Computed example of a mutant assay.
Amino acid sequence: MAAALWDSDVGGEDFSPSATVVPFDPPIPLLRGPVPAGPEDDPSAGPFVLAFNDAASWRSALDATRSKLIEQCEAGARVGCSITASNKCKPPWWKSLIGYTATDFAEREQCEEREMSSCLAVSKEACLHFAKEKCLPPFRDARIAYKSWKGVPLVFAPTIHANSEPICKQEEHSSNSSDSNSEITNYRASVLMEKPA
């Protein structure tokens, strides 16, 4: 009965689920999530800090951001280089008085190819430097959550590997310790970078 109602053409309008339900794209997962602030964090900033889930997600976000910046920078550089090459290789004004020849156009094409090639080579290096400069401060200071922060007080061990989380160990608290309930829930990503800040 219900199906018949959906299929029936009432007043020329289609009220079937396929016509009335609006599909939405699935939500994009957040890059960072809140974790409780640790004893080293500024208490005035609140009880939580935003942190990447692990070192792999931080590294993935850094690589994706860097490559996107380079891609956009190089696209802009191509436009600038084409304008520069066209201006450098255009024939002198008096050539228009005597008329252009096929040789003139061939020379201009070769000139623009040379200028574009050299300009793009310079801009590629500049774009790499630009992306590195823009990514360094936010990703160096980003927080990464410890996988085992819940209920386990952790401290840094002396050894830190470049491509993994810092080695952690359980802190030995004495019964007289005033901060026996404090725990380290996150660490800064600078320890994962080649040159820590």
Rank of each mutant, 00 (worst) to 15 (best):
G33P: 03
P34M: 07
P36D: 01
P39E: 01
P39M: 10
P39Y: 12
E40Y: 13
D41K: 03
D42G: 09
P43Y: 08
S44T: 15
A45Y: 04
A45F: 07
A45E: 11
P47A: 13
P47T: 00
F48N: 09
L50F: 14
L50P: 01
L50T: 01
A51P: 00
A51K: 04
F52Y: 15
D54N: 15
A55Y: 04
W58G: 00
W58Q: 00
W58P: 02
W58C: 03
R59G: 02
S60E: 13
A61H: 06
L62P: 08
L62K: 01
L62M: 05
L62V: 02
A64I: 11
A64Q: 15
R66C: 11
E71L: 14
Q72Y: 08
Q72L: 15
Q72V: 11
C73Q: 12
C73Y: 08
E74N: 13
E74H: 08
E74Y: 09
E74W: 09
A75T: 14
G76K: 09
G76E: 12
A77D: 08
A77F: 11
R78W: 10
R78N: 10
R78Q: 10
G80V: 07
S82V: 05
I83R: 02
I83Q: 01
T84I: 07
A85F: 01
S86N: 11
N87L: 13
K88E: 14
P91V: 08
P91M: 13
W93E: 12
K95V: 12
K95N: 11
S96H: 14
